[in-house]
């Protein structure tokens, strides 16, 4: 127990160190640049305590739950030897975790608003809601596709850079044909799709697969799933903007 407590304390201090820069930056700008008092200290101090405690628990849980689970599933799939089962799991993981992602819901609503103001779709709530839903489905599909492609790449041992550079070239080409008002949203959509719970799981899955499959190097083949999952939404959203 005492070693568990020691471990927790170590993580707690680590979390405190991780949060220190934000606190310093905000305090510096508030007091020295904007020259205003620090408001609501009675709210800020418990809030900061929550943040540090929360980060500590998250990291503890990461090592206990998310990493081992992702790895054991990768292991089980690799031993089962069914590519179809593995790829359908990959698709569900990508699609399922993205479609309900709060950041994506917010961005999709914003995009519908822009499209309506630009006159691309009728300015009614109904058409905006449909546009937002379609956009979310498109992004979720693109992430599902990305994880499938990424897992297949790990199985085959193909280098990631061909996919990423190819994707970049596609983004650049499509940007020239896409309506100007979708570009900002499309570029941002890549960054908002990967949530805090998905990232550790997907990373553990990729690394676990690369560990289990003979001839794969976890550093070279294990990473890269997140990169693909941030690239495909840009392409799909740009295409969505062109079709709409």
């Amino acid at each position: 127990m005492s070693s568990g407590l020691k471990n927790f304390l170590g993580l707690f201090l680590g979390a405190l160190r991780d949060l220190a820069p934000i606190i310093l930056v905000i305090a510096f700008f508030q007091i020295l640049v904007l020259q205003q008092p620090f408001p609501n200290l009675e709210k800020v101090i418990p809030g900061l305590f929550f943040v540090v405690l929360g980060l500590t628990l998250f990291i503890q849980g990461l090592e206990m739950g998310l990493f081992p689970l992702g790895e054991s599933m990768a292991n089980a799939f690799a031993h089962k030897g069914s590519v179809v089962a593995l790829l359908s799991f990959a698709f569900c993981l990508g699609f399922g975790t993205t479609v309900a992602e709060p950041a994506l819901i917010a961005v999709a609503a914003e995009a519908a608003n822009i499209a309506a103001k630009a006159g691309n779709i009728p300015l009614t709530d109904e058409s905006q809601a449909r546009y937002a839903l379609e956009l979310r489905l498109v992004v979720a599909l693109s992430v599902g596709f990305a994880i499938v492609l990424g897992v297949f790449r790990i199985l085959k041992g193909w280098p990631i850079q061909y996919f990423i550079i190819g994707g970049y070239v596609l983004v650049i080409i499509i940007t020239n044909f896409a309506p100007a008002d979708i570009i900002g949203i499309a570029y941002d959509s890549g960054g908002v799709t990967t949530s805090t719970v998905t990232v550790p799981l997907v990373t553990a899955l990729g690394v676990g697969l690369a560990h289990t499959i003979r001839g794969r190097n976890p550093m070279i083949d294990g990473f890269g799933l997140i990169a693909l999952a941030s690239l495909t939404p840009m392409i799909f959203v740009l295409l969505f903007g062109m079709v709409k």
Partner: peptide, 29 residues
């Protein structure tokens, strides 16, 4: 699943941790 109990506890930690983290950020920063 090997170590299922430990994994479930880990999941609870992650949920609890993220909740505290987000509430704290929204309150304080």
């Amino acid at each position: 699943i090997p170590n299922l109990k430990k994994i479930i506890i880990g999941f609870v930690y992650v949920l609890l941790g993220l909740t505290l983290f987000l509430v704290g950020l929204e309150e304080a920063l």
